[in-house]
Design a protein around this nucleic acid. Structure first.
Lengths: 159, 159
DNA sequence: AGTTAATACATTGCGCGCAATTAATGTGTG
DNA sequence: CACACATTAATTGCGCGCAATGTATTAACT
């Protein structure tokens, strides 16, 4: 995706420096890299950390609901949850009302991790820098882009 | 990474809705998903598309330089380039001056892809929506975050 | 010249993301 | 009840990202 920042002359749309998406992509990779040393302390990957965040707040949730919150599917979550189960941080039970659904819970060890995790957000805030306004705006623009990309809608384009 | 958007009350830093990084992560995943149908036409993945963008502009480049531009290493690029070579879009020669360095070129078929690729940026712009100002700002904030995350610098934190 | 160090790339291994398919359970309808 | 259909997860396969390690080539130094 390109933006025109030199409207007076023809801009190559297929140039890296004009690609918003490449900036997004690179920033996300850098962000996940920056999380790694912090999350190594908890023996978690970034996606696993996201899952734990949900489970800390909403124990007993299903894989489906977890997937809706994280925008991930069972192809990603099932093996990830098995790894968390192998680390004994999460239990993967089954609902009694509906044998199809997994009921996810944090174990005692998983609950203890929450204490250690409390310092992570502030440490990351230091790493990314920027003002709170910058961060709020970045979040808002990402959420807006996400919403558009997920609803097949198209703006004033040719249709 | 969390932001405080309700300063009057205690905000859980480990809540998904307060995580800038989760928004970034989800937006990037959505963006790559949105590229997929467009790039399927060119039989390219998004990272392969990025590589082609660089090679269209700078034929004869090395793996190292390519990696610096895309912020990727040989562990990612070597197999990716082999796949592009298998599709006969790219050739992986060797420098005559230094037998270690790979000299990357686009094949004739690869050059032809450039024509097809020209419509991709505008199609993506339609999908993400938002004003040009929004997009420019999103790019700027991502670039800023990337720069901070890649230079071990820390802002006014405890150190 | 000979040893050491640095450089460029390749390889291995692991954990995602996700499309596509399958399996098991549940629901609804005649 | 029988059958079609939907729903929930699991499975398979592939392509990244990246850490860690290996290998071949070049550079540097004495």
């Amino acid at each position: 995706m390109s933006i025109k920042n030199a409207p007076e002359q023809a801009v190559n749309p297929l140039a890296l420096e004009n690609q918003v998406c490449f900036s997004l992509y690179s920033a996300t990779n850098a962000m996940i890299r920056a999380y790694r040393p912090l999350l190594d302390e908890l023996s978690l990957t970034y996606p696993q950390y996201l899952v734990m965040m949900v489970l800390w707040k909403e124990p007993g949730i299903s894989v489906k609901t977890l997937g809706e919150k994280l925008h991930l599917d069972s192809g990603t979550l099932t093996p990830l949850l098995k790894r968390l189960e192998a680390k004994e941080l999460v239990s993967r039970g089954r609902s009694e009302l509906d044998e199809r659904v997994r009921v996810l819970h944090v174990t005692e060890a998983g609950r203890e991790l929450h204490q250690q995790a409390l310092t992570v957000p502030e440490q990351m805030r230091c790493k990314v820098g920027g003002t709170l306004e910058d961060l709020a705006q970045l979040k808002q623009l990402c959420d807006q882009a996400f919403a558009m990309l997920n609803s097949g809608e198209a703006t004033s384009c040719e249709m």
